[in-house]
């Protein structure tokens, strides 16, 4: 436990499920976060809970109720389709929630998650760390300050390796809710909504299953085009197009064009190029600021102050609606409207 710099009682945080690849990162950051006390980890797989708790010597809980009665807030890091059930349990226990993205695999589930938290009177935050990435914030500032003039087009790229290297459920159509479109549209869709302060009204999307040695379980390639109520257009390349040989997991970049010129960001450009042995190959460790830490600090602060988080559950719901529209467009081979 690390004491709050202002001497206040630490906010007690638990982690529900370590299924997601981000869980170990969150656990490690929470264990050392000023003002937070990581109470422990629960997972329906005891071994996974123990393995996740061990590196920071926190407690692995067998009973979810036992953890929930000891915390003020939880981070839910299960497979996408299991978010709703865990949200309902946590909200029922009166605990504030940070839920991993995407909020759910269907619009219905996402809405049920938002409603369950509203009914229970608990705060719900969606894990969109990109909003704390300094490059993304610089773009938001360039738009807010007027430096970019009136934005007219945003082109986003959030491509990566196929995440089955982390956990098999990522490429399971039921547990994950889909493939590359589910996995990689929401970060940029949320970032664009935030930058533009506008909602998506139309979506066109295409997808295929050629990448990753023609993996056929879910879509691996996807391109999404969207139009906002403000008139701005945007696109997202969400493909799992990085091969296993790529020096890092992937990346996130945006080229924004407005009446004042253009503004490019590459969220993970601050990296080293490390050339190892033939076996270790080339890697690109990043040295830029840690957006996950800032996001978790916001969650802890939000729980302590009992206020609306910077990224709400409704933001998570809106992103799921955009993903849903993308799948509807893929099925219809035509643009679909939204909202």
């Amino acid at each position: 436990m690390v004491v709050d710099p202002e001497g206040r009682a630490p906010v007690r945080i638990g982690v529900l499920s370590a299924e997601h690849v981000h869980a170990p990162t969150y656990i490690s950051l929470l264990a050392s976060m000023p003002g937070a006390h990581l109470v422990g980890v629960w997972d329906d797989d005891r071994q996974r809970a123990a393995a996740a708790a061990e590196p920071v010597a926190t407690r692995a809980f067998d009973a979810i109720e036992a953890l929930l009665e000891r915390v003020d807030g939880v981070v839910i890091a299960s497979a996408n389709s299991r978010h709703l059930r865990l949200v309902e349990i946590a909200a029922g226990a009166g605990v504030h929630i940070l839920c991993e993205k995407p909020l759910a695999t269907t619009v219905e589930d996402a809405r049920a998650i938002v409603d369950a938290c509203a009914r229970a009177g608990v705060r719900l935050m969606t894990a969109f760390p990109t909003r704390w990435n300094p490059a993304a914030r610089a773009l938001e500032s360039a738009v807010r300050s007027g430096a970019l003039g009136t934005p007219v087009f945003l082109e986003g790229v959030n491509t990566g390796t196929m995440p089955d290297i982390h956990a098999a459920w990522f490429v399971d159509p039921v547990l994950a809710g889909g493939g590359a479109v589910t996995d990689h549209v929401v970060h940029l869709a949320d970032l664009f909504r935030w930058i533009l302060r506008s909602e998506v009204v139309e979506v066109y999307a295409v997808a295929n299953r050629i990448l990753q040695e023609r993996f056929a379980g879910v879509e691996t390639g996807g391109l999404v085009s969207m139009r906002f109520a403000s008139g701005v257009s945007a696109t997202i390349d969400c493909s799992w197009s990085k091969p296993r040989s790529y020096p890092t997991w992937g990346g996130l970049s945006v080229q924004a064009v407005g009446t004042g010129g253009a503004f490019g960001i590459d969220a993970f450009r601050q990296r080293l190029a490390v050339y190892g042995t033939r076996e270790t190959g080339i890697s690109w460790p990043t040295w830029g600021p840690d957006a996950d830490r800032e996001m978790l600090a916001e969650f802890v602060s939000m729980v302590r102050d009992d206020r609306e988080p910077a990224v709400t559950g409704v933001d998570g719901l809106r992103a799921v609606e955009i993903v849903d529209a993308a799948y509807r467009s893929i099925a219809a081979s035509a643009p679909v409207s939204l909202g």
């Binding site: 295929n208 064009v257 253009a262």
Partner: peptide, 11 residues
């Protein structure tokens, strides 16, 4: 295959 083709005179 799918292609994203971008052209700009906005820079």
């Amino acid at each position: 295959a799918i292609s994203h083709v971008s052209a700009s005179w906005g820079y």
